[in-house]
Structure formats: structure tokens, C-alpha cells
């Protein structure tokens, strides 16, 4: 099966489970499903957002794509190559094209190495350029993330930089090889809002000016709306809704996405704000792996269908796919007006 050319990433029914260590004597470790038969396409040149709460499996998905972990089942294609079977030289070539930016900039830079050493390391590993060319490439990468003049940073060490600067160094390291595809795993969750905006704008620059495709992993719908062309909402390892970012956030179809939007504080919003009220007041027992993942908290779910049959993704509008049996039913909730605090 050959993926079409304008797709850069394709996940097909990818499953990943973790085995937890047995808690007490004689108790076998239980299995935690991090990803449950996920299928996704990311097009070349877009920013694709993977949105979910902690424990939803969004980070696992990113780690599988860059081959930091191996999937249990399913296929992963990046730019036409099957990722799980890469080895040796071909894996190293793959590493040149696919990079990652990690969540915590305080942990993702080696404290013992200077900024120049850190950013030039990928060049050294892939034996690219001579000394002068490497200096030039590192300077270019640092400049592209707004660290200028770059020479001032060459000899500094991570502990001398602020969190935002460190994250930008980490982004420069990812950019120095000129990758086609970058996974950004919650790059701003450890940073303040004003610094996050900086990082977001660099990501936009990467897409617009450098033609990089991005998989942006986040817990924030607002950030996803600002950055992403398309988003996928993921809950406990299951894809809930995939579509254009604006479409999903303004006209969410899945009860879980609706519940997420309900839960976000009404800030920067004026006038009528729709409330969906799809979250169940009291949780009911979960469907034991056979039904919908959101069944236990869903206010729309019907016991007969939702607890016994897992919904698959269905296309309800062009490009907008939802995994819910009742997604096209009458939309729940009523419009209510909230106080208006601040308008942009």
C-alpha cells in the first residue's frame, strides 16, 4: 500500500499498550492502552494539532512517529517510508528528515554542553559540512528562532538562559538539519504565556518560511486554534474528532470535544456563548474496552449502543470526521450569555 504523495505522515490502526508493574504480591501487571487503533493523515506543509488531556496518548503518538518507541501493531509511514522497520543507515537517514521538540526545555538540553555544541551536534552526527559551514548553519538556525546575534549564544550554557531561550535553542537543534517534519510535544506547557506566544510564532515561521510540516501536540484548544490547520481530538487513546481547526472548535460534533469547550474558562469571549452540557454529572461504570471510551462520562450516550459498540470515525462534513454514534443528532445544550470581560 503506497501512501499518496502529498501526505507526509500516515498512521494506520496504530496500537500501543504499556504493561504496568504488578502492584502487590502475585498480581500480574495490568495493561494500559495508550493508543487504540489510531489512523491519521498529515498533509505536507500543514500544522496538525493533536489535542488531548494528560494520559490521552498524544505524547505516545509523537514518540512513535520519531521512533523513540515501537508500536505494537499498525503501520506508520513518514514521507513514504515505513517507520517501524527502519534500521541502521536508513534509520539514520530518517533522523535527518524527522525531528522533535520536547516538552521541558529545562530537561531537554544537556547541562554540560554549550549551546554551540548542542545545536551543532546533529551536524556532527551526520557528518555534514566542515567547521566553518557548521558555524554558519548553527548561526542560521539560532537566528531563525530569534536568538540574535547568534555568536553571543555559542559559548553559553543552558543554565545561563531563560526557559524561553532554552526552548528556542531546542528548536534550533531540531531545525539545523533542515528537516521536513517536526514533532513538537507540548513545547510551551512549561513556559509563561508571553513566552509561549514567541514559540508559537516561531512554529508558524517554520511552516510558512521553511516549509516544515509540524505535528503539534498540546492540551490547549486555544493554542491549537491559533496554530493549527487541522486538529485531532484524542481521548484515552482513541481519536474522537478530526477536522479543520476552526470547524472543530466552532462546530464541535463529538460530546467530548463539546465537554472540553464547556470546561474552558470563558475568557476573551463576548455575547452568546454556546454551552453543550454533554458531561455526565456522575460517572457511570466504564464500558469494558468494547464500547465508546467516553461512555462513562458522556451525557449523550445510550447504554445499549454506546457501551457495547465502539464508534468508528465517520465523515459528517467535508473533512470533518467524528467517532460518535449520536454525532448527527440534535445538538445538545443551549446558548447562554456570559459576562464579557475582555475583547480583542
Amino acid at each position: 500500500m503506497k501512501p499518496t504523495t502529498d501526505l507526509i505522515l500516515r498512521l494506520e490502526k496504530v496500537t500501543k499498550t504499556y504493561r504496568t508493574k504488578g502492584g502487590r504480591f502475585g498480581q500480574a501487571g495490568s495493561r494500559v492502552v495508550a493508543l487504540n487503533r489510531i489512523s491519521l493523515d498529515v498533509r505536507r506543509g500543514e500544522i496538525f494539532g493533536l489535542v488531548g488531556e494528560s494520559g490521552s496518548g498524544k505524547t505516545t503518538a509523537g514518540r512513535l512517529v520519531v521512533r523513540l518507541e515501537e508500536a505494537d501493531a499498525g503501520e506508520i509511514f513518514v514521507a513514504g517510508t515505513r517507520v517501524p522497520e527502519l534500521k541502521g543507515r536508513r534509520l539514520k537517514q530518517f533522523r535527518r528528515k524527522v525531528q522533535m521538540v520536547f516538552q521541558d526545555p529545562y530537561q531537554s538540553l544537556n547541562p554540560q554542553r554549550s549551546i554551540f555544541d548542542t545545536v551543532s551536534e546533529p551536524l556532527v552526527i551526520h557528518r555534514m559540512g566542515n567547521g566553518a559551514q557548521r558555524r554558519e548553519a548553527v548561526a542560521q538556525a539560532l537566528k531563525s528562532v530569534g536568538l540574535s546575534p547568534p555568536e553571543d549564544f555559542f559559548l553559553r550554557y543552558p543554565h545561563q538562559l531563560s526557559g524561553g531561550q532554552r526552548q528556542r535553542v531546542a528548536m534550533a537543534r531540531a531545525m539545523v538539519l533542515g528537516p521536513e517534519f517536526v514533532v513538537a510535544d507540548e513545547p510551551t506547557s512549561m513556559l509563561d504565556a508571553s513566552i509561549s506566544a514567541q514559540i508559537f510564532n516561531i512554529l508558524l515561521h517554520m511552516r510558512d518560511k521553511l516549509g516544515v510540516t509540524l505535528l503539534f501536540i498540546t492540551h490547549s484548544l486555544a493554542a491549537a486554534r491559533y496554530l493549527c490547520d487541522r486538529i485531532a481530538v484524542i481521548y484515552r487513546g482513541n481519536l474522537m474528532e478530526v477536522g479543520e481547526a476552526g470547524e472543530v472548535i466552532e462546530r464541535p460534533r463529538h460530546p467530548y470535544t463539546q465537554a472540553l469547550l464547556d470546561a474552558l474558562p470563558r475568557f476573551g469571549q463576548c455575547g452568546a456563548v454556546r454551552r453543550y452540557n454533554t458531561l455526565l454529572g456522575a460517572e457511570r461504570p466504564a464500558s469494558q474496552g468494547v464500547g465508546c471510551a467516553f461512555y462513562s462520562r458522556c451525557g449523550v450516550a445510550q447504554r445499549l449502543l454506546c457501551s457495547t459498540q465502539a464508534p468508528s470515525l465517520r465523515e459528517l462534513a467535508p473533512g470533518h470526521r467524528v467517532a460518535c454514534h449520536y454525532a448527527e443528532g440534535p445538538e445538545a445544550g443551549t446558548a447562554t450569555t456570559e459576562a464579557c470581560f475582555y475583547a480583542t
Binding site: 523513540l68 524527522v98 525531528q99 522533535m100 520536547f102 552526527i125 537543534r173
Partner: peptide
């Protein structure tokens, strides 16, 4: 992990 992703 970052070094691994870089291909080290």
C-alpha cells in the same frame, strides 16, 4: 532522547 532523535 533528543540526542537519539538527532541520530546519535
Amino acid at each position: 532522547e533528543a540526542a537519539k532523535v538527532a541520530g546519535a
